[in-house]
Simulated scan of single mutants.
Amino acid sequence: MNRKKLTILLLVVIIGSIYTEKLQVTPMEEFNISSGFGLDIKKGADSKVQYVAPFSVYQFKEQKGESSKNITGKAESLTETRQDRQLKSNKPLLIGVQRIVIIGEEAANYGILNFVNLSFANPQINDRSNIVVCKGKSEDLLAHMVKGYPSSSDYIEGMIKSANNYNFFPKEYTFLNIYSILESEGRNLVLPYIELKDTDIVLAGMAVFKKDKMAYILPMEESKIMNMLRLRSGKGVLSLQQSPEEYINYYTKVKRKVRCNKKDDVYEFNIDLIFQGDIVLNTLYKDIDKKKEKQIEELLSQEIEKMCNGFLNKMKEVYKMDLLELGMYSAAKYGRESGVDWNKEISDANIKVNVKVKIDKIGIGHY
């Protein structure tokens, strides 16, 4: 029995020593771990384009903890930026854990298709990290330090992820989403638009793309309405205001349904928006009974319809683009790959918004 145990013990020791030699564990301090990266371009006088790919990498210091710095690659092709970047780094780069990807404004205007295809094809890149467009250069946003965070990438990631709690933003904007939208018929890409105001990084609106090029930047109020009409569901705050001192704030969830028809070669859409939520602040009414509650629901419905119709008019007459992915529903019902310009068709379409508001709670007290 003792001999058998000794034999097993020797085998365990031998096998363990073999695998220990083969298994090489590298400390994280020996890598440049990327917290986020970006894309910028520089246009020369000869119309040549230089790609600028800044990477924010963590720095691990015993006394000060984590911080970050930028390592930037520059070249005339996206792939060659990797070579230039490595010439400025004393460690290999680890890019599979990035928090955020930032596209500079000029690069977004120039076109992002090659960048998306190259990144999506790279198995080392985290294809579920969120992507945003920034005012100015992504390099400046990545280099900006936010108090309490090891890098601006960590802060921006949290800002984008928590944005879905308000303003009806979706939960994510990833490489997977972008690749799917760019390859789909009847869809236009939209991405969060951030900027540096004084020393604060803020979410300022939405960048709207026509194919792979940025066409417009929507301010936050328009972005909020677009998200309500575009997404299947979302959360946000709506207000009914009569004066600076008299208003109601309504925190609500919304669900959207789209019905599509075609009559005399003109597309018709009915967008049903169903809101359900709570009154979180009321300075408009002293007491709210059931009758008054129904009246508030009707007033909110009318106000939301007015907002939506105003946005739809601007979308059709000024932007002249399908910002609501209505072309996707038309293509699914009446056939794909027909050569239809869905931006034009939706701009000429009849679109009706039907709003239903339901108040669940009116709060403990009234003001």
Rank of each mutant, 00 (worst) to 15 (best):
V258Y: 06
P244K: 08
K262D: 06
K263V: 14
D272G: 02
T252W: 01
F269W: 08
S243P: 12
L238V: 13
T252S: 13
Y250W: 06
V237Q: 01
G234S: 08
L273R: 11
D272L: 07
K262Q: 15
T252A: 12
F275C: 03
V258C: 08
K262T: 13
K255P: 01
Q242D: 10
V258A: 13
I274T: 14
C260A: 09
I248M: 10
D272I: 03
V258L: 12
R256D: 05
D278E: 12
F269Y: 15
T252C: 12
K262C: 13
S243L: 07
I274A: 09
L281A: 09
I274Q: 15
I248L: 11
D264H: 07
V280A: 09
K235D: 02
V237F: 01
K255S: 15
K262L: 09
V237M: 03
G236L: 09
L238W: 00
V237G: 02
Y247Q: 06
D265T: 08
R256E: 14
Q242G: 14
N249L: 14
Y251S: 05
D272M: 03
E268K: 14
E245Q: 11
L273M: 13
G236W: 06
L273W: 03
V266Q: 02
T252E: 02
L281R: 13
Y267V: 04
V254Y: 00
Y247H: 10
Y251M: 02
I248G: 09
E246L: 02
D278T: 11
Y250E: 08
E268Y: 07
L281S: 11
E245S: 11
C260T: 15
Q241A: 08
R259Q: 14
Q241E: 14
N270R: 11
N261V: 05
S239F: 01
N261D: 12
I248N: 07
K255Q: 04
S243W: 04
R259A: 10
R256L: 08
D264V: 12
V258E: 09
Q276G: 13
G277L: 04
F275L: 11
D278L: 12
F269I: 12
V280G: 14
Q242E: 13
I274N: 15
N270P: 03
D265C: 05
V258N: 05
L281W: 06
G234E: 09
S239A: 04
I271T: 04
Q241T: 08
G277T: 09
E245T: 08
